[in-house]
Design a protein around this nucleic acid. Sequence first.
DNA 1: CGCTGCGTTGAGCTTCTTCAACGATCGTGG
DNA 2: CCACGATCGTTGAAGAAGCTCAACGCAGCG
Lengths: 227, 227
Amino acid sequence: MDIRKHLSRVDLFNGLSLQQLAEVARIVSDKKYKKGEPVFADGDDGIGFYIVISGRVKVYKVSPDGKEQIMHIFGPGQPFAEVPVFEGSRYPANAEALDHCRLFFFPKKDFVKLIHDNPSLAMNMLASLSQRLKQFSSLVESLSLKEVPGRLASYLLYLSDKNGSIDTFELDIAKSQLASLLGTIPETLSRIFTKLAHKELIRIQGPKVVILDRTGLEDLAEGESKL
Amino acid sequence: MDIRKHLSRVDLFNGLSLQQLAEVARIVSDKKYKKGEPVFADGDDGIGFYIVISGRVKVYKVSPDGKEQIMHIFGPGQPFAEVPVFEGSRYPANAEALDHCRLFFFPKKDFVKLIHDNPSLAMNMLASLSQRLKQFSSLVESLSLKEVPGRLASYLLYLSDKNGSIDTFELDIAKSQLASLLGTIPETLSRIFTKLAHKELIRIQGPKVVILDRTGLEDLAEGESKL
DNA sequence: CGCTGCGTTGAGCTTCTTCAACGATCGTGG
DNA sequence: CCACGATCGTTGAAGAAGCTCAACGCAGCG
């Protein structure tokens, strides 16, 4: 069974025996989503959570006048929408497929049973939620304590790290999505890109980025200097 | 033992037997903090977590140039700083006593053992972290999608609710702290208070607040109207 | 009585958003 | 194969929101 193979690669299920994995596999629904297709909406009844198998999913909030803030982007192996499984019953945000996606869905009731008599699964889930909390805390820090250039600098350094700390790489999402992730709008993001390029901190061409002055970027990301 | 009595009133320990509570009580350190005293600092080694017994604690981040963002204020019965217990090893923010405080401290190692063979404790902890995630998500929403008047309106409505939805109440924290919680500075907050009062949405006098136009405030909080 | 911390007010400025227009790219249908 | 529209990104000009800096009032407390 191909489902079990995928499950065995998910951190959340680390340390589970083959038999336990089989039990997990039994409650999974395998789902496909087209690019741009909603997975669920803010306020929907939360009947379970998901793990990304392939593609990416954005989780976001929208203001009444249409501005969007991406809370998180999830890729292969990452669980999301666990909140309503453990607390309350509604999804606190929207989710939408960024690419063609394959997701595993875990119904709340069945999963709670599993976790209840499976301490290492519980510990893994606690670790997962804790990591999410850390990410939120740096998102809040970013939004509240840094200006947009600093947020962008942080993001570029993060991307560079993810690619093995090399200086040349490509943006993994569209710039308009990046704007929403950084808590700003495309126009502003575009101007900041231009400004960083002008200051010779980076070179930017379409989705291609080259880091020219890593130290300068790091200063910006820490909020050290002006502009 | 007085510790057990306090523990039995904490949501996190709901559903535990007397014996289980006794085991929990055995690992607690009872600690006192003076007003303004730090509990831990960002980056410190996270050797355990805390539960507030009396007083309040703020958890916050600081930018290099000194601006402060309060992530959360914890009151009696609430656990905080659980993240390093389950993921990583360092506290991701600062914590400081807002009043004279009594805190119970739970060492990481001992607590993990307890949770490992105590499914309902694990479930309670999962619920607690999930609730924290929801709060973070509305903090992000607030910071990114609302302007300061909207954030203040939300906070006032929240306070009113907490007091049984009455229209007259007092701010529970100093205005300078409130500014930091709302992601702004005291000067701006002061101006916004004046503006809301001028528009006859509220009356404000020192820490005393009267809600004059609840509907108007709700509109602001939802981000409906201008200014 | 004066000090200190908190809150308020004013003036000027920075950052970011809004609105509008335009260019480039890409996929589709003619 | 080209033309078209749609989406995305960029740029400019103007305006709004919030921040900085500075001064001052006020209360509590040593």
